[in-house]
């Protein structure tokens, strides 16, 4: 905490100097140059002295996992994320003021406050205090007398110990992060759906709105059928396989039957069709101890790590 206060004060000093250099009419210029100065300050200290002044004063250093000496790319990556969070934190009071001025101001202010809040929360709530910057860059803040090379496996074990994931009869529950990545890779083995998506995009492009809407409806129907068929037949989609996950029936541990799989895909489609509902799905899954959203509850399924479970759930 003391380290962050010292670094925050020095960061303010850097920003003050930058703001003195750039005329007030170039607000965005000030912010971007301030961000660059903060990033350079953070990166150079961490790469050359292994810590910023605040950390040095409190006998802490930044270590890259599994490496004795930090890679420059890692140092700069960490510096960029840290600086964005710090800058958002520093300008949050001004951003709150901007939120009351206009519609765009409200959006802009909310984004800044959101980034600042997320940055702080990521540090406070993360196991081993590894905030978003450390997790993205693959680093950790340790005392000076910690081993020269910090083992990633030990850190992962420590993380798991602080945040245990429940074990079902069919294996460990898949993490939400793995499930998000699986969702992103959803179309990787579905060329028909990709071609359909291109058709919809082209229809939007050439301003055939009715055709675009019609094609989009057909595409969603295809997606639901495809999702249900893959889950029922293979216990998951291409994304699930890539992430080592399997969708299994909570009673049998096998892939769900086509009926429940179809119901699961249908409920998911409701959330996909109305993206503002997605945060509801996300919060629901976060609050569930087994990571089950409404789609899993409807189908009676659970998403588990198939590699550790020793069973592919019927795959």
């Amino acid at each position: 905490m003391l380290a962050r206060l010292i670094d925050g004060a020095l960061g303010l000093l850097v920003l003050y100097l930058v703001f003195r250099l750039v005329p007030g009419s170039r607000v965005l210029g000030r912010l971007v140059l301030g961000l660059g100065a903060l990033t350079t300050y953070e990166a150079l200290f961490v790469l050359q002295l292994r810590a910023t002044p605040g950390k040095l004063a409190t006998s802490l250093r930044v270590a890259e996992l599994d490496r004795a000496r930090m890679d420059p790319v890692t140092g700069w990556t960490r510096a960029v994320v840290t600086s964005v969070g710090t800058l958002a934190l520093i300008i949050s009071p001004a951003a709150l003021g901007v939120m009351t001025t206009s519609g765009p101001g409200l959006v802009l202010g909310a984004v800044v406050v959101g980034i600042a809040g997320g940055y702080v929360l990521s540090i406070i709530t993360a196991p081993l205090r590894r905030g978003v910057a450390d997790r993205i860059a693959g680093t950790i803040v340790v005392p000076f007398d910690a081993p020269e090379v910090v083992d990633r496996a030990a850190v992962d074990d420590g993380t798991d110990a602080q945040r245990p994931r429940p074990l079902t009869a069919w294996g460990r529950v898949g993490t939400n992060e793995a499930r998000r990545r699986a969702r992103a890779a959803r179309l990787d083995d579905s060329p028909v759906l990709v071609v359909g998506l291109v058709a919809v995009l082209l229809a939007w492009t050439v301003d055939y709105v009715a055709l675009a809407i019609g094609l989009a409806c057909v595409w969603v129907a295809l997606l639901v059928v495809d999702e249900a068929w893959r889950v029922a037949r293979h216990g998951g989609t291409a994304g699930h396989r890539r992430e080592g996950l399997a969708v299994v029936d909570e009673q049998t541990g096998e892939a769900p039957a086509i009926g429940p799989a179809f119901a699961r895909a249908l409920v998911l489609a409701v959330f996909w069709l109305f993206p503002p509902l997605l945060p509801v799905l996300w919060i629901w899954m976060q609050l569930s101890t087994t990571g089950r959203g409404p789609h899993d509850l409807v189908a009676g399924t659970v998403v588990v790590e198939s590699t550790r479970a020793g069973s592919r759930g019927g795959a």
Partner: peptide, 30 residues
């Protein structure tokens, strides 16, 4: 990794041709 709007899935990986092809067509027909 792409953001697709207004269709479902929101963020999904797509082959590059699926992004660049429609882009080129859109520039030709606008």
């Amino acid at each position: 990794l792409s953001f697709v709007a207004p269709l479902p899935l929101v963020v999904v990986t797509l082959p590059a041709w699926a992004l660049l092809g429609p882009y080129l067509v859109s520039q030709l027909v606008t």
